[in-house]
Nucleic acid binder design. Structure first.
Length: 594
DNA sequence: GCCGTTTTCGGCCCGACTGTTTTCAGTCG
């Protein structure tokens, strides 16, 4: 766990859940949830805050501050420990089943004595649920489906969590005496959208000290377990269920090992096949001449990845491309793409402030963007049709005025006033054209009616693209990793509409979304669509999200040119003026301009 | 439990959707 903030936030969240589960005051529970969210998204590390600093975090009052302090002093929160004793942890786990909330979970626990997801599955399969008051046949089926979803997700870990753990381990092992090199490999290095386990690689003459340091890490000693432990490989499982494999190799085999353990398997097979055809043999220990016998075999390359690729007649291939999806052929023909990187991003075009459901102020978000050296940034709070956000025309206009006042306050960073519109069931959006005219940029996203038919979803998205004020379609499929699949729509038809109307497609970089995914990015790219890689940040911490989105873009072979927020302002400005572009297009086509 | 140029008490994000009901409870965003 990287920051104390995250650790404390998790405990407060648990406390809130347990309060709800024990039938406590709902508002009290919500106060803890709110405080947890504020703490997780708070810029400063909790470890360095005094009582006054704690209370300055919005949503943190006397009681929460005391609990935070208690945890810092004693490593536990008494009130939480007491609640844990009342409710088996499995009951809280059950509320993670989509469609199953605290009330139903508590009913199941009290009436049927069910206290784990496994018991829940058994009872549902045996048809024991549908006789309970408030439960029926459909509920039973939905719970079974929800359990399936949960199981799938529990086997994969999102990138934010995976990077936190990987960074912590690499940092700790790199400091061990005799460690020449240490890095994460596997699907994390390839930036897959979620990872099953972590592969950590280290180079050292002697593996013992590294293995010892590994199993002594807090990640392992605090509720984790050692699965296997040997001289070249040790596997552990963290308390949160993430398996981590550490492999230690001799320093002169570093490159070959890194290549081997980065994968993908399909990529490696292609490389090995190429080696065999050239009379060579490729393994995690190096590239060898296959004609010599095992005892005297001659090592051709192994120290660096570069060296191994070069010996096979290839340039170095970036890890996100290593999926055997054409990268070997491209490398042979010297047409690997120059991939977009985080440093290419000149701005963020989708973020929220505390005017709606963000937790940081406008000024805090802008200051953090400025520290990231952006040339421009768009503030895009929610629009009124997402009723719970209570947006009004007045609030939006006041924010715009404030933003205009702040112009020039953050160096040369250009401040754009935008909004995240809701795409209604028929494809309409929150405000009429006259009001939309006032925005510099509009993102439009689906937030409701996820279950509409394929035809209806397709029509609604195409209509949104055709709206001259909609510049970017946000989180197109609306999926939440491990929680919810995407909507059903003819996405290729939507991509065609995006390309035709000059509407960009968002690569939503929130690690819980990564929407759209690499496959869809690739398809859309082929259809001529442009992209915007955005954080969808609801806190200053989340403004770091774009790294995950860039990873997906790299997996889809995107170059900076395909990404509108790598463009200089003047070029982006022309792109945002859909009216001018379409008028030009329709002049050519001879049809009437809008 | 938190918070306050409407409040130091009395509110607290509001409405849709689903599945169970026959007027509503629970869940979700």
């Amino acid at each position: 766990m990287a920051r104390l903030n995250d650790e404390v936030a998790a405990l407060l969240d648990e406390y809130a859940d347990l309060l709800t589960l024990t039938g406590g005051d709902a508002f009290r529970a919500r106060a803890y949830t709110k405080a947890a969210r504020a703490i997780a998204g708070h810029g400063a590390d909790l470890a360095g805050l005094d009582g006054k600093g704690l209370r300055e975090i919005p949503g943190v009052g006397k009681s929460v501050a005391e609990k935070v302090d208690e945890f810092r002093r004693t490593g536990a929160i008494q009130a939480l420990t007491a609640l844990r004793a009342q409710i088996p942890p499995g009951v809280r786990e059950m509320t993670a089943v989509p469609g199953l909330g605290p009330r139903k979970a508590l009913t199941l626990h009290r009436e049927l004595g069910i206290s784990t997801p496994a018991e829940l599955r058994k009872a549902a399969e045996a048809g024991r649920l549908h006789d309970l008051p408030g439960f029926g046949g459909r509920t039973e089926q939905n719970i079974l489906h929800g359990l399936d979803l949960l199981q799938q997700s529990s086997e994969r870990t999102t990138l934010d969590v995976a990077f936190d753990v990987a960074d912590e381990i690499v940092a700790a092992l790199a400091k061990v005496r005799g460690c020449r090199d240490c890095a994460y490999a596997g699907s994390l290095r390839r930036f897959r959208e979620t990872v099953g386990d972590l592969d950590i690689l280290a180079a050292a003459e002697e593996s013992g000290p590294l293995m010892d340091a590994f199993v002594a890490l807090p990640l392992v000693t605090d509720g984790g377990e050692v699965i296997v432990s040997g001289p070249t490989k040790t596997s552990i499982r963290t308390a949160r269920g993430l398996q981590v494999d550490l492999r230690v190799v001799p320093p002169d085999a570093w490159g070959a090992a890194l290549l081997y353990f980065t994968g993908s398997k399909a990529h490696n097979i292609r490389l090995r096949t190429m080696a065999v055809k050239a009379g060579l043999k490729l393994s995690e220990y190096g590239l060898f001449d296959a004609s010599t016998d095992a005892a005297t075999e001659e090592r051709i390359a192994s120290a660096t990845e570069d060296e191994v690729y070069a010996a096979l007649g290839l340039p170095w291939i970036p890890p996100p491309l290593r999926e055997d999806r054409g990268e070997i052929e491209a490398a042979l023909e010297d047409r690997l793409p120059t991939l977009v990187t985080v440093d290419d991003l000149r701005g963020d075009l989708h973020l929220h402030t505390d005017l709606t459901d963000g937790i940081a102020t406008l000024e805090e978000m802008l200051a953090t963007c400025h520290a990231r050296h952006y040339s421009y940034v768009a503030v895009t709070d929610h629009a009124p049709d997402l009723v719970m956000q209570r947006m009004t025309d007045e609030k939006m206009l006041a924010q715009r005025e404030r933003l205009r006042e702040l112009a020039g306050r953050y160096g040369r960073m250009r401040l754009l006033h935008g909004t995240e519109l809701n795409i209604g069931p028929d494809g309409g959006v929150d405000w009429p054209a006259e009001f939309l005219d006032g925005f510099d940029l509009c993102v439009a996203s689906i937030h409701s009616h996820f279950g509409a038919s394929r035809d209806a979803q397709t029509r609604r998205l195409i209509r949104a693209c055709e709206n001259p004020h909609v510049n970017i379609i946000g989180h197109l499929t609306t999926r939440r990793l491990g929680r919810r699949g995407g909507i059903d729509a003819d996405l290729d038809a939507v991509f065609a509409a995006c390309a035709r109307t000059g509407t960009a497609l968002e690569i939503n970089a929130s690690p819980q979304r990564l929407d759209v995914n690499d496959e869809l990015i690739r398809r859309a790219h082929q259809a001529g669509v442009h992209f915007s890689i955005d954080s969808d940040a609801h806190s200053t911490v989340q403004l770091d999200n774009p790294r995950y989105g860039v990873g997906q873009a790299q997996r889809a072979w995107l170059t900076p040119d395909a990404v509108i927020n790598t463009w200089p302002w003047q070029r982006l400005k022309r792109f945002l003026d859909k009216d001018a572009k379409n008028a030009k297009g329709s002049e050519k086509a001879g049809s009437k301009p809008k």
